[in-house]
Amino acid sequence: MISDLFSVTVLVGILASGIRLATPYLYAAIGETFGQRSGVLNLGVEGQMLLGAFAAFYVALKTGNLGLAVFVALLVGAVMGLAMAFVTVNLHAQQGISGIGFYLFGLGLSDLLFQKMLGTVETVKGFPKVDIPFLSDIPGLGEIFFSQSILVYGAYLLVPVAWFVLNKTTLGLKIRSVGENPEAADSLGVSVAGIRYFTITLGGTLSGLAGASLSIGLLNVFQQNMTSGLGFIAVALVYFGGWRPWGVLGGALLFSMVNALQLWIQVLGIPIPSDIAVMMPYVLTILVLVASVSRVRAPSALTKSFERDE
């Protein structure tokens, strides 16, 4: 039965599933990458995702306007990001713990709003699959790469954009310098607070979008705690990727593909206990990182708040 794993159906299936599963991780982890590159660890991603997911779902359900739904999710994520920025930048709050606070707040508030505004699990018409002309007709590959929802394409387009912004623009240089040496950046006239406000808000916005990609892109449903730890995995993937967008993409794909693989292992009836199969993506992510013996250094000022000497 193990040989069944190598059939075309299964390989195509794994790739297609992996690409879909990686979508929310990409949005959230790329956003988190910007934050961490500027020296801010945000553990509240999961809460921002949940609020974004609910906001998008609710608007889509009530208005049917998917563009508006995405906009509202972005807005909600941005507001959560701004709050996080205020707390960590202005109030110098410990980043890890305030993130946990925002996570709990988002978890609770999204559930509360869900109960009071909807009351029951419903489905919504989300973004349809968009076939890219010609390319989607390629056998096998077409289905994998060119027949997905627009929010899936967006996540993958975000990777080169993020890479470009971080590495090839002045803004990216400022972000990196604030994350490495805020004192030096400050003395060169870069507004440390401004840059961090920008990155944290961007992170929140993208987390909101990550939530929307679940509730109106991939699943078209909202349920309490529907992210179920996804936001924390996204934060972990930033470390896996060594704070580089392409690395994050690699990590997200690896984790998602292995997850898709374990689903197939069960479907094909390969005799591994289900719990052990479910462990696989987590174990392999660690093992790959061990094997690659990465020497990437974290941004020096990560988790450290900055205060100008008076």
């Binding site: 679940l214 997850n259 719990d275 479910v278």
Partner: peptide, 20 residues
């Protein structure tokens, strides 16, 4: 074909299991 996803709350994985 049976798939246990190891969670009562992971909606995303449940839906991907259905896709599988």
């Amino acid at each position: 074909n049976v798939n246990y996803i190891g969670s009562f709350s992971d909606v995303a994985l449940a839906s991907e299991a259905a896709n599988t």
